[in-house]
Each structure stands twice: as structure tokens, then as C-alpha cells.
């Protein structure tokens, strides 16, 4: 739920990284945190298990600075991908303005990706968000590994509707900012069109 505050002159938007467990959602956010100009970011909050799996969410606020007197903020969240954390995933989607789906491109993870995409659809609907119109970007992560599917196959299996998609190696930062840029612009566009 975007918040436009004409009094404090701020625009706030929420972007959620979704996808199967171990796909690289947290890795994306951590890379952004590490690389971005420190003056543009707030504190990174990670609610994780001792084994470093996301338990509830990661949260990173990014601040674009003043543009025509307005401050624009993007709040990045990751959901916990493990199947049994579904209740938490639903909560994180509350008021989302855009979604990045981080797929694990390894062939043996295909089924988990498909399940997670279906789970996303169900959970968006449960939060009164429309899966057909919410700004959405697909990321195929872990492209450095040997057992990944080809881009054509990935597109065919996971992205039949042809949403904007990026290949990534999040551990090396490859594709991370391209993905973030794309979703931020889509979200902004949706807000400016009053969608």
C-alpha cells in the first residue's frame, strides 16, 4: 500500500521478494545493502533462524533522496521461503506494491518454483491484491551452477505470461540491481497511473 504524504512530502512503497526456500531472496537484499550508497539506506533487519534461514522477514528501507521536493522510499521485504512458514508469508504481502519472484534456476528445483508461484497467487488474493495487475518481475537466480535450466525453458515453465525477467547470480551481485531497478520503475509507474 503506497503512502503519499503531502505533509512530510514522502512517497513510500513496499516491494516483496518472494520465492522458494534457499532461492536467494535474502542474498539479493544483502547485496543491495552492501553495495548501495550508505546514505541511501537504513538499517537491515533480518529475522532469521540460527541456521540463517529467514524466519519472518528481512527488511531494508531505501531512500531516493529529494526529487522535486518529495522523498521517495522503497521498503524491501523478503518472505521466508520454507513451505511451513506460509502464515508469515501472507503477512509480509500485506500492502505490497510490487513483487520480485526469485526462482532457483536449478533443474531439480523446478517443482518448488512452480509451487511457490502458485502459493504467491493464492496469498496475493488473500490480501486483496490482484495477481494479474500487481507490478511483477521474475529473476532466475543461481545461473552460475552447472545444473540450471536454459533461459528458454525457464521462461516457458515459469513465465508463460512474459513478465520482465532477469538472469542472476545473486551471490556475485549479477542481476541484482537490474531486477531492483525494474521493479521500482514498475511500481512507480503503477502509482503514477493511479493503479
Amino acid at each position: 500500500m503506497s503512502l503519499i504524504n503531502y505533509a512530510s512530502r514522502e512517497i513510500n512503497c513496499k516491494i516483496v521478494y518472494y520465492g522458494p526456500g534457499l532461492g536467494g531472496k535474502t542474498t539479493n537484499i544483502k547485496y543491495v545493502y552492501k553495495q548501495i550508497d550508505p546514505s541511501a539506506r537504513g538499517k537491515l533487519v533480518s529475522l532469521a533462524t540460527e541456521a540463517d534461514r529467514t524466519l519472518f522477514f528481512d527488511f531494508l528501507p531505501l531512500d531516493l533522496g529529494q526529487v522535486q521536493g518529495f522523498k521517495t522510499r522503497f521498503h524491501l521485504y523478503t518472505v521466508p521461503g520454507q513451505v511451513h512458514y506460509d502464515a508469515s508469508r501472507r503477512l509480509i504481502l500485506k500492502g505490497a506494491d510490487g513483487v520480485v519472484f526469485v526462482a532457483d534456476a536449478q533443474r531439480e528445483r523446478l517443482e518448488q518454483n512452480i509451487e511457490s508461484l502458485e502459493n504467491l497467487r493464492v496469498n496475493l488474493i488473500s490480501q486483496n491484491l490482484d495477481p494479474e495487475t500487481i507490478p511483477f518481475v521474475m529473476q532466475y537466480n543461481k545461473m552460475d551452477l552447472a545444473n540450471v535450466m536454459s533461459s528458454e525453458e525457464l521462461e516457458q515453465q515459469l513465465n508463460p505470461k512474459g513478465y520482465l525477467s532477469f538472469e542472476a547470480i545473486a551471490v556475485e551481485g549479477i542481476g541484482v540491481f537490474d531486477t531492483l531497478k525494474a521493479i521500482s520503475k514498475l511500481v512507480l509507474k503503477a502509482i503514477s497511473e493511479g493503479r
Binding site: M1, S2, N5, Y6, D130, I191
Partner: peptide, 15 residues
Amino acid sequence: MLQDGLIMYEDSFEK
């Protein structure tokens, strides 16, 4: 999305 988005105006903000 804006249909559920919140717009805050100066006067409500002050109140």
C-alpha cells in the same frame, strides 16, 4: 496499489 494506497494531506497530518 493506489486504490488501497493512503494519501495524507497537510491538514489531516496536523490534526
